[in-house]
Nucleic acid binder design. Sequence first.
DNA 1: AGACGTACCTGACCGC
DNA 2: TGCGGTCAGGTACGTC
Length: 272
Amino acid sequence: MPELPEVETVVRGLEQAMQGRIIAHVTLNRKDLRLPFPPTLKTLRDIKITDVSRRAKYILIGLKDGRTIIVHLGMSGRMTVSDSPAPEKHDHMIIVLDSGMQVIFNDPRRFGLVDLVDTTVLDHHRLFSHLGPEPLEAPFNTAYLAEKFKGKKTAVKIAIMDQRVVVGVGNIYAAESLFESRIDPSRAAGSLRNDEIARLVSAIRSVLQRAITAGGSSLRDYVQTDGELGYFQHQWAVYGKEGQTCPSCKKPCIVKITQGGRSTFYCPERQK
DNA sequence: AGACGTACCTGACCGC
DNA sequence: TGCGGTCAGGTACGTC
């Protein structure tokens, strides 16, 4: 689920509730998710939260003592904030704040992770060291992507989901960006002309930005921190719409194929 | 290097 | 009602 727009929406919600607050204590209800919880996590107490931010699909909670809590939502993770939460199955971590609010990390599939590291070594962390540029920042541009795509035989859809190429783009927004830029997802990345790469760059930017504005896409598990759904799923052109009417052709021409073991949706008439 | 497949895990849904 | 199969927003790792 959570691709960049969902993570960004969660970060903005967490920022409201957490920035400047003190962590009273942290409760863990199991020993691990995708990775073991670090032993230091449950000892956090009376520490001020300086800021909440995002890198790729990771949530970063900065602490005054020079450390950072890293959270990844995996496929089914959600973080919600409430002053009187009803306990739910799969609540794995609860951060209690001095305000009385509880920040709950719930993740049925447990593909998510939590780590606690020194902020100064974040960039060298094994989860971060290989990450490409942020899609909404200047270093992600046509020249950069052209260089990355040069000689690449990988399908362009696989390539834009590769976090070493650009971060934050997952299965939904890859499909939507390729539809918007009129590019066939199966094309070899290295076969794209410069004008096509330019279209792709601006499509990725525009799709992600519009999705953030809509509060993300709610498919199954995803909600914003206040429990509200995201609304971008109503703006999907092709994702999950096999056999349905294409907004471009006005015909039922949307097809589903499999790439890298994942479903890809696209319109063969529009996307060449 | 890069292109694959596989693994991690629960839950929803579908056909029988 | 139950059961097995399939699929789901991500990522790391192994193998060729």
